[in-house]
Simulated scan of single mutants.
Amino acid sequence: MKIAVIGGSGFVGTRLIETLKDHTIHQLINIDKQQSPFFPEITTIANVLDQEAINNLLKGTDLVVLLAAEHRDDVFPRTLYYDVNVQGMANVLAAMDLNGVKHIVFTSSVAVYGLNKDNPNEECPIDPFNDYGKSKWMAELLLQEWYAKHSECNVNILRPTVIFGERNRGNVFCLLKQISSGRFLMVGNGKNKKSMAYVGNVVNFIRYLICNKSLGYDVYNYIDKPEVTMNDLVAHVSRVMGKHIPSKHFPYWMGLLGGYCFDFLASITGKKLAISSIRVKKFCANTLYDSSKAMTTGYVPLYTLSEGLARTLNYEFLEKRTVDDVIFLTE
């Protein structure tokens, strides 16, 4: 089987290709607008918005894993979310039709549910609160329409929560770095629960879907259980790091006001700032999602959430790093 990973030069894609190369004998190609720092030998530089290029590159392909997306909170102009996430999906589906490709795995997001939902499963109402979530849902709708005309094909949609792991420089890394530094400022009471997914588990679930799900249309939330509260996370980091980590609590309203101030500064300076009102809202929100459907497939996560956090903390903050280590900038 020939597998085309579209958007495989980034954080999740790199780990996925590594996992597939270790566990399968399938032929792999990576299509990305950036060169892969680890797998240049199988990478072709192309943009998902280039229909002709995608048409040509999917020749002879049996299965597509679509990872390419605009996903940061600070993408500008906002239309890029829809250009890449929605039109990109349309282009890939057109190329699949042209080349007779019948299988696709698509990484969507729990962002389609919106904030502060009560442990939604895959059947819960869709209510995205930002352009990223809206564009991911629009891409899913294109897949629904495509499958309705291609019932002989196979669609697997993965809606992961925030993904973290070694080499990632996203929100979870920044949070772990702040906590481990001992200069962490807790907005709210710290009792809100956060869902997370360790990259090693996410890519192995994708591999499981590739190897075991070849019929029908399925959507899966992916979250490593059980979720932890912010207070629990601080305590876990303290244990792994072997040091006492104090945390100061600030009222939510004060944190949100500060976020709006940073929004204003970003708008007048044109600079991307580490703090924003959206990030404060996301930080203080309960993010609980039902992942029981994924667990009923027979897949067993390779790591517990605690193990994934410990592996990340050890790699990033306890082991000796070299200055030229490859890192991935994400949310």
Rank of each mutant, 00 (worst) to 15 (best):
Y147F: 15
D263Q: 02
I327Y: 11
V219T: 15
Y303S: 13
D83W: 00
C261Q: 08
R159H: 07
R159Y: 02
S292I: 07
T44P: 00
T44D: 05
H23S: 10
F173E: 04
V105Q: 07
A95I: 05
K136R: 09
K293L: 14
N204W: 00
D325Y: 01
G190N: 11
I278V: 06
D131C: 01
D97K: 11
F39V: 05
D324R: 11
G7Y: 01
Y260K: 13
V326S: 00
Y299V: 12
L58W: 06
K149R: 13
M230I: 03
N168C: 04
N314L: 01
V237Y: 00
L20S: 06
E316W: 11
I268N: 09
T107G: 14
G258L: 07
F106C: 02
D83E: 15
W146T: 12
A111R: 03
N116S: 11
E140Y: 09
R169Q: 08
M138F: 15
V323F: 03
V240T: 13
K281L: 06
K243P: 05
L175N: 02
N30E: 00
V84D: 11
N192D: 10
C211I: 13
L158A: 03
L66P: 08
K272M: 05
T304K: 03
L67N: 12
K59W: 09
